[in-house]
């Protein structure tokens, strides 16, 4: 029941490479985010004292604080990376496919 246009697009080389690239980036960044977060959560659950180590002899700040703040920054940075790549790469390919198949 597929239209001929859909068949054309799905076999289109640009479309295939767009899907492949986008899903690679999406899943890679998702995996990094999930892995970081669940490592952190397991650290909290099993070794809370590790996060309680001080960053230096004289300081009262524990390494848990920069680690926590870094995860927040990493989350923001990863969305920035995705948007940057998508704006540069995917949008162009998308337009190309749509133009070709009008």
């Amino acid at each position: 029941m597929k239209s001929s246009l859909e068949k054309k697009i799905i076999n289109n080389q640009d479309f295939k490479s767009l899907v492949k690239k986008r899903s690679f980036i999406s899943w890679l960044l998702s995996a990094i985010t999930l892995l970081t977060y669940f490592c952190f959560i397991l650290l909290v659950a099993f070794f809370p004292e590790v996060l309680g180590l001080k960053i230096s002899e004289e300081s009262i700040i524990t390494i848990g604080i920069p680690i926590g703040v870094s995860i927040i920054l990493l989350a923001f940075a990863s969305t920035g990376i995705y948007v940057f790549i998508a704006n540069r790469e995917f949008d162009k390919t998308e337009k190309k496919i749509l133009k070709k198949n009008k």
Binding site: S30, L34, Y37, I41, L51, G68, I72, A75, Y82
Partner: peptide, 21 residues
Amino acid sequence: GYDGLIYSIGFLVGWPIILFL
């Protein structure tokens, strides 16, 4: 103290996943 930060991180990390997927 620190527990509040753990909670915030959990609330935040859903967002990148929503974006990517």
